[in-house]
Amino acid sequence: MIDVLICEDDFRIADIHKSLIEQYAELNCIGKTNSIIDTKRMLEENKVDLLLLDIYLPDDIAVKRLGEFRVLRPNLDVIVVSASNHDEHIKKSLRYGVYDYILKTDSLKRLKSSLTSYIKYFHAIEAQQTFNQDTIDHLIYKQQQYEPIKVLPKGIDGITLDLVRHQLMTHQDGLTAEELSEHLGASRTTARRYLEYLIRLKHAKVMPIYGIVGRPERRYFSL
């Protein structure tokens, strides 16, 4: 079992990442933190194999603390999931040997691909007793094959889109645009825009639900 810790100060995104981890039998989410100090405490007190790490945290820029995390857990692997495309953050993360660096602009599908690859990498490196150049190349380059990220249309934000997908997946009886707007803290117009975009992608469907009187209610469901 691969023990995973989520460090993310937005609880909604942390919940999405936890739900994604729970889809894998090989992964075990041991907890969620939202600060450097809590992350260090969890690393001190628990076995952690993989850290999903946001960069911008309330008490510091997390990339500055990668060395401290490694002191606490020398075998720790890190996947950065951040809105930061700052060159120094990316360069420092790569120099500290993070397994992956994923921008939040459209992170969910990309993170799923990375976790799938990481599971294979983790088991391969744990099982390997002797190494030749082929096995070393396989571990270093990980043979990751990511689908190119499509540019999102104007008015569609990647983080909000992930939140909408998550809400649809967790509400199996569907959501109206009004209900979704309450979950997002956004207007009904915004909620409907994201729902209709997911329908165009064939990631959602809409069904009219007829009540006793009045116009039918449009409910959206995940596909």
Rank of each mutant, 00 (worst) to 15 (best):
I156E: 00
K120L: 13
I156V: 01
Q129L: 11
E147A: 12
T176V: 03
L198F: 08
G214T: 07
K150Q: 14
E178L: 14
Y197G: 01
T160K: 10
S181M: 02
L103K: 09
D173F: 05
K109G: 10
I136L: 15
L195W: 02
L201W: 10
Q172A: 05
I140G: 01
Q133Y: 09
K142N: 07
K92T: 14
A191M: 01
S107W: 12
I119P: 06
Y210F: 14
K142E: 07
A124I: 05
Q128G: 04
Y146H: 14
V151M: 09
G158V: 03
E126K: 09
L111P: 13
V98T: 12
A177C: 08
T189P: 01
Q144I: 14
S117N: 14
P148I: 11
I149G: 08
G97N: 09
L152F: 11
I209G: 05
D106P: 03
L152T: 08
L168H: 02
D173P: 00
L163Y: 00
I212K: 15
K150R: 08
K120C: 09
R188E: 08
D157I: 04
Y96M: 11
S107Y: 14
T116Y: 11
D173S: 12
A186I: 00
H183I: 03
Q133I: 09
L175G: 08
E126N: 12
H166I: 00
